[in-house]
Design a protein around this nucleic acid. Structure first.
Lengths: 104, 104
DNA sequence: TCATTAATTACCTCTTACGTTAATTAACAT
DNA sequence: ATGTTAATTAACGTAAGAGGTAATTAATGA
């Protein structure tokens, strides 16, 4: 499991964040379906690699297609990081803790 | 208010994430108090600038000292991003939504 | 005033990130 | 076999990120 800075760094790029958001909203999608027309396929391919290596997405092979989906643990790790500092929120978010635990 | 990719990018560096975590845990601290000995003051200063420009911290001036603290909205924005995709968690995190709203 | 403390800005170096086009690999379909 | 589709790897250029030393600004204190 990669470090949190690595996760944040991977999401710190608008193209990659958009990929992850589409996968979260629509579920598993192929590289082709995720292709943005403002960028070339090789560039997209490298973004997928960054996301894979950061442990944010997993790749599944189906013939020539590469199907991607988000790893729940990655998003959950971010949620838990926020919750780790819930004292900062003056205790108003205590229920988040239980909720995140349930999702495990 | 900066974009989410900018926020993630700012936290995507181990030194800056450590700064933010100390501020969250200990509250307002001066640049000097946050100084890591593995890095020079100028380098730290530039990290503070990145965090300021990303809207993650605010600077307060006290004589020669610069006092930093975390902007709650920034951490909250991350929490809300996670929650925006709560359907992904099979509805088990619905309560997070209410909790984050309370913290506003 | 002059030295000290706190932090930043200027300048330079090196590495990584991100994009492109061209070439390649792999699986299908005819 | 051959062409087509899907995606990646190779090779290359440019820009941004992160670090250092030296110089500078600003406030304090003797």
């Amino acid at each position: 499991m990669p470090q949190l800075p690595t996760t944040f760094a991977a999401l710190g790029n608008a193209t990659r964040l958009a990929i992850v958001e589409r996968l979260l909203a629509e579920g598993e999608l192929s590289a082709g379906a995720l292709q943005a027309d403002s960028i070339t396929p090789p560039a997209m391919s490298r973004h997928f690699k960054v996301l894979r290596e950061a442990g944010i997405v997993v790749q599944r092979v189906d013939a020539q297609r590469r199907l991607y989906s988000v790893k729940p643990e990655a998003v959950q790790a971010i949620g838990e990081w926020v919750l780790n500092f819930r004292e900062f929120w003056a205790g108003s978010l205590d229920r988040l803790d239980a909720a995140l635990k349930e999702a495990e």
